[in-house]
Design a protein around this nucleic acid. Structure first.
Ligand code: FES
Ligand code: FES
Lengths: 161, 161
DNA sequence: ACTATATCGGACCAAATCGGTCCTGTAAAT
DNA sequence: ATTTACAGGACCGATTTGGTCCGATATAGT
């Protein structure tokens, strides 16, 4: 179906919410799982599971014990969608042979390795152009960008410019 | 896992093979399923299944009966990876709410619709930049492009230049 | 007309993946 | 000590995927 998993979907929503409520100085506010679950209207265990893995992978910082929770560990400008996806569902590898060598049966007789790498590269690159900050900025001034396709000779980078 | 399904993977390989063996004048050669299955070293029923759906969706033209088979219906320059993916596994919609309105439960209270559309748009756009012709061209002169990341101020379009 | 060749459409099943829940343990604050 | 909240992972039902198989139909060649 070519979709991101729901875990990834939810995870990015959670990260956006957290980044959006960080104070202006850029300090990282602590949110606990229950609070976040309420906010995005998802079951606590699900949210909890996602936050745990985000913490394990170093995207969030966890604070245990009473009044604990999670806070962003990275600057929202620097955290890309590609990274979030990678953390939440493994490396962006559109097919088995898109990665480096050795995985695929055919490989020798196959003229497709480079093509797959091309596809993979282009998608990965596109996802690396979007930062978490772009996402929380996107709610309004996006319309203009969305209505017209991104031109190759225009900057592909969004938000920063 | 953020992968294309194997059907899609195989399908694109098959299309590449067919496009690659079209004669120089651009005429579309007929290949039958068995021949193609041998060539890409996959079980006949699998290849057959894929070709059937490609034909049903109008990407291939089918020729029934003895000495029948399939031929490309579209120019390889015009057929994009985005189209192939769409045909083989449905529209590129990275999350449920990436499409147009009405699907999602939250939607009202949700600040994520535009962000998802942004992500979806960027990926879709990237996939639309690659044509089948690009893929069969990619085997050799690609290395240089792949080794250095695409710069935003360089052309994002590959193959045509 | 008969036969061999191929596609057409869909049913079918096993295996893998996904989405979600739950439980036990541990660290911190009061 | 008690309460709060994260850590880690087992677990299970539901869905999706990957792959096979079959009966029907259309065409080419004899
Ligand atoms: S290397 Fe895997 S199919 Fe080509
Ligand atoms: S519209 Fe679906 S989560 Fe926002």
């Amino acid at each position: 179906m070519f979709r991101l998993s729901k875990i990834t979907d939810y995870g990015i929503v959670l990260l956006s919410h957290m980044a959006g409520s960080d104070d202006r100085a850029g300090d990282h506010v602590i949110h606990n799982a229950r609070e976040l679950a309420d906010h995005v209207d998802l079951p606590l265990p699900v949210v909890s599971k996602i936050l745990k893995s985000l913490a394990r992978e170093g995207v969030l910082e966890s604070h245990r014990g009473a009044r604990g929770g999670y806070s962003l560990k990275t600057n929202a400008e620097r955290l890309t969608v590609a990274q979030m996806i990678t953390v939440l569902e493994g490396p962006v590898a559109m097919t088995e042979c898109a990665d480096s060598a050795g995985q695929c049966l055919h490989e020798e007789s196959c003229a497709m390795r480079s093509p797959w790498q091309l596809i993979n590269h282009v998608v990965k690159n596109a996802l690396e152009e979007i930062s978490l900050a772009d996402l929380i900025r996107a709610t309004d001034p996006l319309a203009a960008i969305l209505s017209s396709p991104i031109q190759p000779d225009q900057p592909a980078r969004l938000g920063d410019g």
